[in-house]
């Protein structure tokens, strides 16, 4: 029950943020109505959040605040790298497939790690099942960066400080 109320509050917050109708009672009523409808549909579907733990506790920790800017910086750096490779007339690519073992314990941590790898240009997660994570890398050096595991350690840290 608490979960559903929480979800409803989240929906209503997003609705207010996007619509900006703060003064019209009729429109506010419509907003409340549609948020309730969405909450009921989500409850009926019963597919959201099978881990039964609120997401935001872990995403709002100090480690997380340090992680997102770091990820942004990695994205900018690897974007410039890949752009240089593409614009190079010789096209110096050496595609490789590697598999790594994720050190995160929870599903959410692994998903954040896999998505971070994919979001960084030059590396794409192709499969995540059980205890292996297959990564396709554009260059050997990008693959070495993933194998060094700096990003994985940071995600795992974010997970432990929850």
């Amino acid at each position: 029950m608490f979960h559903h109320l929480n979800r409803w509050l989240f929906y209503f917050g997003v609705w207010l943020l996007l619509s900006g109708y703060l003064h019209d009672p009729l429109l506010l009523g419509f907003g409340i109505l549609s948020c309730t409808l969405c909450a009921i549909v989500a409850w009926r579907m019963d597919v959201l959040d099978p881990e039964k733990e609120p997401l935001r506790l872990r995403l709002m920790s100090l480690q997380a605040f340090l992680y997102w800017p770091w990820l942004l910086w990695q994205i900018v750096k690897s974007n410039i790298d890949v752009a240089r490779i593409i614009l190079d007339p010789k096209l110096p690519i050496s595609p490789t497939m590697i598999s790594v073992r994720p050190i995160q314990r929870t599903d959410l941590g692994r998903v954040i790690y896999a998505n971070s790898i994919t979001l960084t240009p030059g590396t794409v997660t192709t499969d995540l099942r059980g205890d292996t994570l297959d990564v396709h890398a554009l260059t050997q050096s990008a693959a070495d960066d993933v194998l060094a595991g700096d990003m994985g350690r940071r995600v795992a840290q974010m997970e432990q400080r929850s």
Binding site: V82, A83, L119, T120, P121
Partner: peptide, 10 residues
């Protein structure tokens, strides 16, 4: 896929 990644992120 990596080239499409550039478009989508930066």
């Amino acid at each position: 896929l990596h080239a499409a990644g550039i478009t989508d992120t930066l």
